[in-house]
Computed example of a mutant assay.
Amino acid sequence: MPTLALPFPAIDPVLIQVGPLAIRWYALAYIAGLVIGWLLARRLVSRPALWGGTSPMTPQDLDDALFWATLGVILGGRLGYVLFYNPAFFAQNPADIFAVWKGGMSFHGGLAGTLLALALFARSRRIPVFSMLDVAAVVAPIGLFFGRLANFINGELWGRPADVPWAIVFPHGGPLPRHPSQLYEAGLEGIVLFLIMLLVVRSGELKRPGVAAGIFGMGYGVGRIIGEFFREPDVQLGYLAFGTTMGMWLSVPLVLAGLGLLLYALKRKPAP
């Protein structure tokens, strides 16, 4: 291990606190991801040429969809963490299931919750479900980017011990320098995936409902699996069979589902 390591930046996880009311960076990350994603989504649906001449939804539809997506992210993310990452603890302490301020959210659960919420919303408005999911897929990396930055600020979900020059000693990660895996994931799942989704939009693939959603599923799954090679697994789970992690296993079905959706969408003729 190196004799020197980068110091962990002393950033208070609480931005502002007034009495019992605390505004945390983590909450702001969720808000920023949702709001910026919503603004970009409105811009996408306001350009009919991207969809082949007629947009499948209106900006006003997205105003209402934001509420549904927020519920899906929060409820799905929390339920996914409870079921996938710490079911034994929450079985013994069911009241803590609702203590979201203590941390514990699963992206895969949040994704499932958001997919379900947006699919139900789209059906209620008679919007093509795949087109609604395509919009969400294009803007989702924005939320992922801010979320991983918040993980870093909180000093949580740190990486495995490392001897790279940029290794960091995290306050709650023991004395060993570790990979800043949160920043790796912010780059892969946020910046790189967002650029890929912009290329998908620019190439006119929104005219094929399901292409963007399929590419997002594959891209996130692959990026997450790569990130897991640098990330320390949750202490209550540890390493699974063959040195894998829970994050890897949850990402494999996402890659396969994304590939299946992409192949299905490519068989359909694009809108003129």
Results as ranks from 00 to 15, higher is better:
residue 34 L to T: 13
residue 79 L to E: 01
residue 8 F to T: 02
residue 53 G to Y: 07
residue 246 M to W: 05
residue 127 I to C: 11
residue 250 L to D: 00
residue 192 V to D: 09
residue 67 F to S: 10
residue 172 H to L: 13
residue 69 A to I: 08
residue 237 L to A: 01
residue 252 V to R: 07
residue 241 A to Y: 11
residue 128 P to G: 10
residue 271 A to P: 03
residue 174 G to R: 04
residue 56 P to Y: 08
residue 174 G to E: 00
residue 124 S to Q: 14
residue 256 L to M: 12
residue 175 P to D: 08
residue 257 A to H: 05
residue 207 K to R: 15
residue 236 Q to W: 00
residue 188 L to S: 12
residue 135 V to F: 07
residue 50 L to Y: 09
residue 33 G to A: 11
residue 261 L to G: 07
residue 237 L to D: 00
residue 153 I to W: 05
residue 257 A to L: 15
residue 34 L to S: 02
residue 99 A to C: 11
residue 27 A to Q: 08
residue 200 V to S: 12
residue 65 A to Y: 07
residue 161 P to H: 06
residue 181 S to Q: 04
residue 65 A to L: 12
residue 14 V to H: 06
residue 94 P to W: 09
residue 137 A to Y: 07
residue 102 K to M: 10
residue 6 L to S: 06
residue 192 V to M: 15
residue 27 A to S: 13
residue 86 N to P: 04
residue 212 A to G: 00
residue 69 A to T: 13
residue 243 G to F: 10
residue 138 V to M: 00
residue 139 V to M: 07
residue 4 L to T: 14
residue 214 G to Y: 13
residue 172 H to W: 09
residue 117 A to L: 04
residue 145 F to D: 11
residue 107 F to C: 02
residue 198 L to T: 12
residue 170 F to C: 11
residue 259 L to K: 10
residue 17 Q to C: 01
residue 77 G to M: 09
residue 129 V to T: 14
residue 152 F to T: 02
residue 225 I to A: 09
residue 95 A to L: 14
residue 77 G to C: 04
residue 88 A to V: 09
residue 160 R to F: 00
residue 52 G to H: 11
residue 101 W to F: 10
residue 179 H to Y: 14
residue 78 R to H: 04
residue 116 L to C: 10
residue 146 F to M: 04
residue 198 L to V: 13
residue 237 L to M: 13
residue 141 P to L: 05
residue 261 L to K: 03
residue 225 I to R: 05
residue 152 F to A: 07
residue 169 V to G: 06
residue 224 R to E: 02
residue 121 F to H: 08
residue 229 F to A: 11
residue 117 A to V: 09
residue 83 L to M: 13
residue 268 R to D: 04
residue 100 V to P: 03
residue 256 L to C: 06
residue 198 L to F: 05
residue 206 L to E: 08
residue 211 V to Y: 10
residue 64 D to S: 14
residue 132 M to L: 05
residue 195 L to K: 04
residue 3 T to W: 02
residue 192 V to G: 04
residue 80 G to Q: 05
residue 146 F to A: 09
residue 109 G to W: 12
residue 151 N to C: 08
residue 191 I to C: 02
residue 180 P to A: 07
residue 78 R to Y: 07
residue 80 G to F: 03
